[in-house]
Amino acid sequence: MFVPSKRYPLGKSFPRSTLRAMFAGVYALYPLGCILQLVSTPETFGIAGDVAGLLMIAAALALFAVLAGSSLQRQSQEPETMLDERELAERNRAAFGAHSIFSGLVLLGIIYLMIGRDLIANQKLMVWLPETGEHWNAIFWGLLIASLTLPGALLAWGKGEPEDEAE
């Protein structure tokens, strides 16, 4: 998802280190916030855990909103005709990597669900499995954010620091 602004029609450029930190923030804060919300009961962290979890999710979404207007998101999401050959070559490599990672994540999730169900059915081990609509909602939005940002994240970890274009 790329959201251009009037001021930055080609997306805002950030230093690679900032972009990497923002992507890492999204991937760390969202799942941690969800887990904190999940484990927060009156006996554990109480309302403080709930609020902290919510704040972490909000921070992850705020970072996602900033990334949506970045030049890397433009490169990863714009139609082919809007990119030059170097941008397109990099994007294709990143898209292939993102596809592999995303497929692997989904496959691992399905394997976990299968093994978890078996373990619970045979009463060998109690593992956490998503049950409520809230659980599935958190997983859905997490996967959606991952699918929208993974190509951009792989571009951020690519080689080369963009230089001043007017140089």
Binding site: D84, R86, E87, K159, G160, E163, E165, A166
Partner: peptide, 25 residues
Amino acid sequence: MSRKDLADLVGVNPQTIGYLERGDY
């Protein structure tokens, strides 16, 4: 010529000129 001037003449993003000059692409 600036990178932007050259980029406009050959129809690429100015950053691509930088990548080319550095041998990154």
